[in-house]
């Protein structure tokens, strides 16, 4: 009466437009997490070799999206996850959540996107939601210098709950469509400076037009995936990765006696 794994199937294939075969490139060279042209070789080899199901290990990363009220955190996520843009503002209560599935180098990989509320009222609970984040996306409005200024505070709050050395940071300017090239150029200088200081990768996007949104999330997924695989490879020096450990209290070995006849299943 054991659970036959083979009776289960993996989820339907990842959406075609969520397949990443090559490392998406950074937005600005001066503020990038790294500037290599392709995935780390070790990672590529691991993904190629691990055709036998041992890969699923590094399959999930928690991403939190923080930033001032109304800078467009929810819009950014909705543009990517639902390809939708709602002009009406609706404050997020507590947090919103999306799960986005990718396939990176042939390996399934998911991002848990936690879209936190910018409202002061929810600051006290934010730390609960920050815990365990591997990627922090700090969002500001490129038309609102103050929101850029506040990003340091957001970062500090987010890192309180996490190991700062283990977190990948992204600084994202939104509403690019609303700013003139000159205005934008100016704030970009400041943003790049902050990004470099806090070791974040900088991006500027428009959720209205969709400019750079997809590129940005692909980059996030790829870098998070790469980091996960590398960390896993390092850890698994001695241990065989990929053993599925099952905590299943009712499996086949649990017979009361050896000779007892199995009743037919009556239900």
């Amino acid at each position: 009466m054991s659970v036959r794994i083979s009776a289960m199937s993996v989820l339907p294939p990842v959406r075609r437009d969520r397949i990443i075969a090559q490392l998406p490139q950074y937005f600005r060279k001066e503020a990038a997490l790294h500037t290599k042209e392709d995935f780390n070789n070790k990672v590529k080899t691991a993904c190629q070799e691990q055709r036998t199901g041992t890969v699923g290990r590094f399959k999930i990363s928690k991403v939190i999206v923080v930033g001032d009220l109304a800078v467009g955190k929810t819009c950014l996520i909705n543009r990517f996850c639902k390809d939708a843009f709602d002009k009406n503002y609706k404050a997020t209560i507590g947090v919103d959540f999306e799960m986005e599935r990718f396939e990176v180098l042939g390996v399934p990989f998911s991002l848990q996107l936690w879209d936190t509320a910018g409202q002061e009222r929810f600051k006290c609970i934010a730390s609960t939601y920050y815990r365990g984040a591997q990627v922090v996306i700090i969002v500001f409005d490129v038309n609102d210098v103050a929101s850029l200024g506040h990003t340091r505070q957001w970062l500090e709050d987010a890192l309180k709950e996490n190991d700062p050395t283990a977190v990948q940071l992204f600084l994202v300017g939104t509403k690019k469509d609303l700013s003139s090239p000159a205005q934008y150029a100016q704030i970009e200088q400041d943003a790049l400076k902050i990004a470099k200081e806090i070791s974040a990768e900088y991006w500027a996007v428009s959720s209205l037009t969709g400019e750079n949104v997809r590129e940005f999330f692909f980059r996030v997924a790829s870098l998070a995936f790469e980091t996960n695989v590398l960390a896993e490879l390092e850890k698994s020096g001695t241990r065989q990765i990929g053993d599925v450990v099952r905590i299943n209290s009712n499996s086949s070995n649990v017979h009361t006696t050896s000779k007892k006849k199995q009743p037919n299943c009556c239900q």
Partner: peptide, 28 residues
């Protein structure tokens, strides 16, 4: 040792390529 945290038996892993942990498993 076999029960508490049970390690998948090899024969059950015959089509391991399609297995990944619970996150990805669903039923037909």
């Amino acid at each position: 040792e076999e029960l508490g945290e049970q390690v998948e038996e090899p024969e059950e892993l015959e089509d391991a390529s399609s297995i990944s942990p619970a996150e990805e498993i669903t039923l037909p």
